[in-house]
Design a protein around this nucleic acid. Structure first.
Length: 816
RNA sequence: GCGGACGUGGUGAAAUUGGAAAACACGUAGGACUUAGGAUCCUAUGCCGAAAGGCUUGUGGGUUCAAGUCCCACCGUCCGCACCA
C-alpha cells in the first residue's frame, strides 16, 4: 500500500546524510554542467506557499533530470532576509528581527526538505549573515569609489507608515509596495546609485537574453529611452534661458506657451511681482500632495501664469510661461513647450486656460505655418528645425537613479563615515564587515534617520583620516541590495578573501535557468543586472549578463479563481496537502495543472487524480493489488483466467506487441517535455504508459517496464521512485543517480498509420495502413472503401492531394 | 490612452511544419465489489439527432484542397505602464 507519510520522511532522512553530500556540486566539474537557480525566498512568518512550491518543483525536476543525464548540477538555496517584512513582523510581535529571521529560516528549510527538493545545502547563504553582507558592503564601496554611489538632496518618495524613503521601483500607483500607504514627496539627502549610467547597456543587452517577452517589455518601458531635442527659450527682459525637452521639435512653430514644473528652480526668479502670491500658493499646495494625489486624483489640468514671457526661437513670438503639475520635475528638463494642436495634454491645458491653439502639421503630414519649413514632411523637418533653433539632440530616459538608503534598522549598514573636516570617508576594505549592532529599540524614528543614529556608541567614531570626531552613516541599505548578487556567492560561499573566485565564477556563470515570479521584473531583475554589469567592468565576473534564460511560473489562484489571500480565506496550505496526499502528489499536481507560465486555479479534486495515479504506479511496481480489498484488478489475473473472446485475444496480442513500443515512446516524450519545461504533458505521457501497462496481464509486465516507469517518474515524485527502486525493484543505489533511460528511434517509429480519407476536405473514412505507401497505393486503398465510394459516385475527381503518412484528399466536381 | 499576453467541452487543459479538434486528468451518469463507500475497478461522457448524418476552437470576413494554427476587422479577459513632453 502506498503510504507517502511513511516513505517520504524515510528518504528525506537518508538524503540528509553528510549535509546532503550527494547533491553537492563540484567547484570545478570536469564534464558538462548546468546552473539551475531559484529566486531565493524571503523567509516570512507564513512559511512556504503553493506558489513557491510551483517554481521550486520545476527547478528540482530539471536538476534531478540533468543529474541522471550525467551533468554536474548546481542547484543552491538561500535566504533573502533583510528588509521591511521581517522588521515589521518583528515589531508587531515585539521580537528581535534577527531571532525572527532565524526561526523563519529554520521553518522554511524544514518545509523545503519536506518537499524533497534536491538542494546543495552546503552552499546555503543568508543575506543577513555578516560574512555575506561584508561583500554587499564591499560592492557598495566599489560603487562609491567609481562615482556610481553618491549622496544628494533630491525629492524622494517617502512612506509615512514605514517611515522610510523608497525607490521609484517600490512605488506602485503612488503607493508603498509593502504597506499600501500613499507615498509623499520629500526633499531629503540620500544615498543614490547611478543606475542611469548603465541605462543604455541595460536596454541594449536585453537582446542577449532568452526571457519572457513581457519581462523584457517591462524593463524596456521602465528604462524608457526617448530621443529628442533640448532647446532654449529666452525669458523676456531677463538674462535667463528656459531649456525644454521635446521629441517633436518639428512642431516648435506651434508653441503657444511654456510650462514649468512647480519645483523648477527658475520659478521664483522669473515670476512677476503681481503673480507671486498665486504662484507661491500653487507651488506650496503641489508640494504637499502625495504622488498618488498628483497623478490620479485629478485628471483636470491645473496651473497658474507667472506673468513672464519667453521668446520662441523658431518664429520670435512671445509666449506666456505657466507652471503646472503636469510638467514633471524629474523627467526631461522639468519644462515643456506647449503645442496644443499636436499634443493631447497640451490641448486640455490650453482649453482650460483659453490659450491659443495653432496648427503646424497638416493632415497629409507636411508642415504649415512653419516659416521656411512649410511643405516638408514633419519627420524630415526634424533635423533641420533642430539646427535652425539651435537645439541639441539628446537621449532621455524615464529610468531614474536608485535611491539607496533606508531609515530603518534591519538592513546592511552603509560603510561610510561622515567627518566635518574630511567630508565622506569610506571604510577601508579590511574594516568590513561593518556589523549591524544589536540594539533594543529598533522602531523607526520618523526623524528621517535610521534608529542607528541614536546608538552613540556605534555612530560616533574617529575619522579614519584626520582622527577627529566623526559619525557613521546611520541609514541602511534597501532590501534589494543582498539579492543583487547572491547567485555569485553560491559559487564560493565561504571565501574570505574574495566575493567569488574568478575561476569558479568562469565555470558556472552565467546562470543557465532562472525560475521565479514575474513580480520582480523591474525590481530585483533590473538591480541585479545593474550590479552585474558593474562587477563585469571591475573584472569580478566574466559575463555581462547574469541570467541567460528566465522562466516565470504563473501564479496559483485559489479555488474561486481569485488571488489567494488570507482575507478571502482561499489560501491552500502546503502542509495540509502533504499530510493528506504527500509531497510527491503535491509536486506532481502543481506540475500537472497546466503549463508552467500560466495562471492556474487550484482544484482540490484535481490532486486526487495524481494521488490515484501514484497508487497505480505503486501497485504496478510492487506487483501488488491496487485496492484495499475485494477488487479484481485485471492485471492480477492470469492470462488463462480471462474469459477470452476472439476479439479480446486479438486485442491482448496487440497490446503485448505495443507495450515495448509504448515504453520507448514514453521515454522520448518525457525526455523532450522535461527539456522544454512542459511538465504537464510529460506527466500525461507517464499516465498513458501506466494505463497501457494496465491493459496487459501482470505476468507479462517485466522488470524493464517497471524500471523505466520508476526512472522516468523519479524527477517528479522522488520519494516514491526511490522507495520503489530500492525496495520493490531491489537496486542498491539511489535512483537519483541512475542513468536516464534512452529510447531507440526505430522502436518509436510506428510501422502503420491512420490514413485519413477526405473528399473535398471532409473526412469520410479512416483506415490503418502501412507507413510509407505512395499516392497510387493510397488512392487504390482509399477507393476500395464503401463509404468513400458512396461519395465519389457520380463525381469527377478534379484533383488529388496526398500527404505522405497522413491523408489523401479527393477534390471533386459533379459529373454533369 | 499606450504596450504585452491570451480567448478550445461542465472544469484544468492537449493538438510537431497548416493535415484525425478535445490527449491526460477532474467532474458527472450508470454498473461491479461491498455492512457501508467519500476507497477501488468497469462503461459512457463536446453539442443536436432514434439513426444516418450534421454542427463545433470568442464573433464576422478572407487565403487554402485543408485553418484552433496564417491574414484583416470587431468583441472580450488578464497583466504591465500611465500627464514621460
Amino acid at each position: 500500500m502506498y503510504q507517502p507519510n511513511k516513505i517520504e520522511p524515510k528518504w528525506q532522512k537518508i538524503w540528509a546524510k553528510n549535509n546532503y553530500k550527494n547533491w553537492h556540486a563540484q567547484d570545478k566539474p570536469k564534464g558538462k554542467h548546468i546552473y539551475i537557480l531559484d529566486m531565493f525566498p524571503y523567509p516570512s512568518g507564513e512559511g512556504l506557499h503553493v506558489g513557491h512550491i510551483e517554481g521550486y518543483t520545476a527547478s528540482d525536476i530539471l536538476s534531478r533530470y540533468y543529474r541522471m543525464k550525467g551533468l554536474d548540477v548546481l542547484h543552491p538555496m538561500g535566504w533573502d532576509a533583510f528588509g521591511l517584512p521581517a522588521e515589521n513582523y518583528a515589531l508587531k510581535t515585539k521580537k528581535n528581527p534577527k531571532k525572527v529571521v532565524s526561526q523563519n529560516i529554520k521553518y522554511f528549510r524544514k518545509q523545503l526538505q519536506q518537499m524533497g527538493f534536491s538542494y546543495d545545502w552546503q552552499r546555503e547563504i543568508n543575506t543577513t549573515d555578516p560574512n555575506y553582507y561584508k561583500w554587499t558592503q564591499w560592492i557598495f564601496l566599489q560603487l562609491y569609489k567609481n562615482g556610481l554611489a553618491y549622496e544628494d538632496e533630491v525629492p524622494v518618495n517617502f512612506c509615512p507608515s514605514c517611515k522610510t524613503v523608497l525607490a521609484d521601483e517600490e512605488v506602485v500607483e503612488g503607493k508603498c509596495e509593502r504597506c499600501g500607504s500613499a507615498v509623499v514627496r520629500k526633499k531629503l539627502k540620500q544615498w543614490i546609485l547611478k543606475i542611469t549610467a548603465m541605462a543604455d547597456r541595460l536596454l541594449k543587452d536585453l537582446d542577449l537574453l532568452d526571457w519572457p517577452a513581457r519581462v523584457k517589455t517591462m524593463q524596456k518601458n521602465w528604462i524608457g529611452r526617448s530621443e529628442g531635442v533640448e532647446v532654449e527659450f529666452k525669458v523676456v527682459g531677463q538674462n535667463e534661458h528656459l531649456k525644454v525637452f521635446t521629441t517633436r521639435i518639428d512642431t516648435i512653430f506651434g508653441v503657444t506657451y511654456l510650462v514649468l514644473a512647480p519645483e523648477h528652480e527658475l520659478v521664483p526668479k522669473i515670476t512677476k511681482e503681481n503673480y507671486k502670491d498665486e504662484v507661491e500658493n500653487y507651488v506650496k499646495k503641489a508640494l504637499q500632495k502625495s504622488d498618488f494625489e498628483r497623478q490620479f486624483a485629478s485628471k483636470e489640468k491645473s496651473g497658474v501664469f507667472t506673468g513672464a514671457y519667453a521668446i520662441n526661437p523658431s518664429n520670435r513670438e512671445r509666449v506666456p510661461i505657466w507652471i503646472s503639475e503636469y510638467a514633471l520635475i524629474n523627467y526631461g528638463t522639468g519644462a515643456i513647450m506647449g503645442v496644443p494642436r499636436h499634443d493631447e495634454r497640451d490641448l486640455a491645458f490650453a482649453q482650460q486656460f483659453h490659450l491659443p491653439i495653432k496648427e503646424v502639421v497638416s493632415s497629409d503630414g507636411t508642415l504649415i505655418n512653419s516659416g521656411p519649413f512649410n511643405g516638408i514632411p514633419y519627420k524630415k523637418a526634424q533635423e533641420k528645425i533642430a539646427l535652425y533653433v539651435g537645439g541639441e539632440k539628446t537621449v532621455r530616459y524615464k529610468l531614474r537613479d536608485w535611491i539607496f538608503s533606508r531609515q530603518r534598522y534591519w538592513g546592511e549598514p552603509i560603510p561610510i563615515i561622515k567627518c566635518e573636516k574630511c567630508g565622506l570617508v569610506p571604510l577601508r576594505e579590511n574594516q568590513l564587515p561593518l556589523k549591524l549592532p544589536e540594539i533594543k529599540k529598533y522602531e523607526p524614528t520618523g526623524k528621517n534617520e535610521s534608529p542607528l543614529a541614536d546608538i552613540s556608541s556605534w555612530v560616533n567614531v574617529k575619522c579614519p583620516q584626520c582622527k577627529g570626531p566623526a559619525k557613521r552613516e546611520a541609514n541602511t541599505m534597501p532590501q534589494w541590495a543582498g539579492s543583487s548578487w547572491y547567485f555569485l556567492r553560491y559559487l564560493d560561499p565561504k571565501n574570505k578573501k574574495k566575493l567569488v573566485d574568478l575561476k569558479k565564477e568562469k565555470v558556472w556563470m552565467p546562470v543557465d535557468i532562472y525560475i521565479g515570479g514575474v513580480e520582480h521584473a523591474v525590481l530585483h531583475l533590473l538591480y541585479a543586472r545593474f550590479w552585474h554589469k558593474f562587477l563585469y567592468d571591475l573584472n569580478v565576473v566574466s559575463t555581462p549578463e547574469p541570467f541567460i534564460r528566465l522562466v516565470n511560473q504563473g501564479i496559483i489562484l485559489g479555488e474561486d479563481g481569485e488571488k489567494m489571500s488570507k482575507s478571502r480565506g482561499n489560501v491552500i496550505s502546503p502542509n495540509d496537502i502533504i499530510e493528506k496526499y504527500g509531497a510527491d502528489s503535491l509536486r506532481m499536481y502543481e506540475m500537472f495543472m497546466g503549463p508552467l507560465p500560466f495562471a492556474k486555479p487550484w482544484n482540490s479534486q484535481g490532486i486526487i487524480g495524481i494521488y490515484r495515479f501514484l497508487n497505480r504506479v505503486w501497485s504496478l511496481a510492487t506487483n501488488s493489488r491496487l485496492s484495499l480489498r475485494g477488487v479484481k484488478r485485471r492485471s492480477n489475473l492470469k492470462e488463462s483466467d480471462l474469459k477470452m473472446t476472439n476479439e479480446a485475444k486479438k486485442k491482448l496480442k496487440e497490446n503485448l506487441k505495443e507495450i515495448e513500443k509504448a515504453r520507448h515512446r514514453t521515454i522520448k516524450k518525457v525526455t523532450e517535455d522535461i527539456e522544454s519545461l512542459r511538465f504537464n504533458t510529460a506527466i500525461s505521457a507517464l499516465m498513458e504508459y501506466v494505463n497501457q501497462l494496465f491493459e496487459i496481464p501482470q505476468e507479462k509486465i517485466n522488470q524493464k517496464h517497471r524500471e523505466t516507469l520508476v526512472l522516468l517518474l523519479s524527477p517528479f515524485a522522488p520519494h516514491l521512485a526511490e522507495e520503489l527502486w530500492q525496495t520493490a525493484l531491489k537496486h542498491r543505489k539511489s535512483v537519483g543517480f541512475e542513468k536516464w533511460p534512452v529510447f531507440k528511434s526505430e522502436l518509436v517509429e510506428e510501422k502503420s498509420f491512420i490514413l485519413v480519407v477526405q473528399i473535398n476536405g471532409r473526412i469520410r473514412d479512416k483506415m490503418k495502413v502501412q507507413k510509407g505507401i505512395d499516392e497510387v497505393q493510397a488512392q487504390k486503398i482509399a477507393k476500395e472503401s464503401k463509404k468513400v465510394k458512396k461519395y465519389l459516385d457520380k463525381q469527377k475527381i478534379k484533383k488529388v492531394i496526398f500527404v505522405k503518412d497522413r491523408l489523401i484528399n479527393f477534390v471533386t466536381t459533379p459529373q454533369n
